[in-house]
Computed example of a mutant assay.
Amino acid sequence: MLRRLAHACLGGLAASVVVVGVGVSPAHAESYSTVSSAIADLPVASESRTGYDRDAFKHWVDADGDGCDTRDEVLIAEADDPVSVGSSCSLSGGRWFSYYDGVSQTSASDLDIDHMVPLAEAWDSGASSWTAAEREAYANDLGDSRSLVAVTAAENRSKSDGDIADWVPGREQCRYLKEFVAVKLRWRLSVDSAEKSAMTSLAGGCSGSITVTRAR
């Protein structure tokens, strides 16, 4: 069973990670002493959704062939109470905490797996030029625990495909910002001017460092 490889640090979920991906080679880790310095390293570029198709990102694959797809792997990894894994990766038991809204769930079916940087936003920010293998690796990134997160379905659908300028959760906004920035850096995605401005404004109230291992 694939495991997401990361360790959380006080003040910001800075993570040291190993890449687990399809057609992607690991790279060196980069550390930023502040949130603002990490944001400053994000390239600014205009965004275009021309040609976007969600199916261009093959997701919820069973990369290791154990019967559990990416969605299942995230649910198993993030469960606060142990999950029993049955045949065909049927899950029972378990309890999950959706940090976007501070709600605990005991039913896996009530949870969505959120791509921290939505697929459409990734496309806009550089993924349109990636290979199919790179997009698949991105959509199933178990190498960094910040890339995919189990949250209540309502929060995920409220977020939709928004970036930081469009949507932030009602709680733990600094954690959310750090994770969003980390994923953008990890995958060498750009930001548009409105997004970078929103990130910079929000970062003023956030402390802690960010460590990222590049996925490409």
Score class of each variant (00 low, 15 high):
W96I: 07
A79W: 07
M116A: 03
V181L: 11
D112W: 11
G102H: 09
G51P: 04
D81T: 01
R188Y: 01
G86F: 02
L42K: 13
S201R: 06
S160Q: 10
L5W: 15
S46M: 00
A63T: 05
G143F: 01
D62F: 00
C9M: 14
L10Q: 13
W187Q: 06
G205F: 00
R175Y: 04
A15C: 12
Y100E: 09
L5V: 15
A153W: 10
H115T: 12
V85I: 13
A137H: 05
R4E: 07
D101C: 13
F97S: 03
S104A: 07
D101G: 07
C174M: 09
A14S: 08
D69M: 01
M199E: 08
S190K: 11
D53Q: 08
A15S: 10
T152K: 00
G162E: 02
S193A: 15
A127G: 05
E136V: 14
S48C: 08
A198D: 04
D62N: 03
L111C: 03
W130G: 09
G94R: 09
V19A: 01
T213N: 12
A203G: 09
D166I: 09
G204V: 05
P118M: 11
V74D: 12
R146Q: 08
G21Y: 05
Q173F: 13
F57N: 01
S98F: 10
P118V: 04
S209E: 12
H7T: 08
S193P: 10
R214N: 01
E155L: 08
S209K: 14
R171Q: 15
L13T: 15
A153R: 15
A154W: 02
T131F: 04
G170M: 11
A77Q: 11
K159C: 07
S31M: 06
T131I: 04
V24N: 13
L177Y: 12
A15L: 12
S128A: 15
T106K: 08
R49A: 01
C206T: 06
D80N: 15
T70Y: 10
I164G: 00
G208W: 09
S147D: 08
G51C: 10
A132P: 02
R188S: 05
A79C: 09
G208V: 10
A127D: 08
R49E: 07
A27I: 03
G126C: 11
V22H: 03
R54L: 01
G23M: 00
I39N: 12
K58W: 01
E195Y: 11
W130L: 03
G12Y: 08
K178A: 01
R157V: 00
L189R: 13
S31D: 01
R135Y: 04
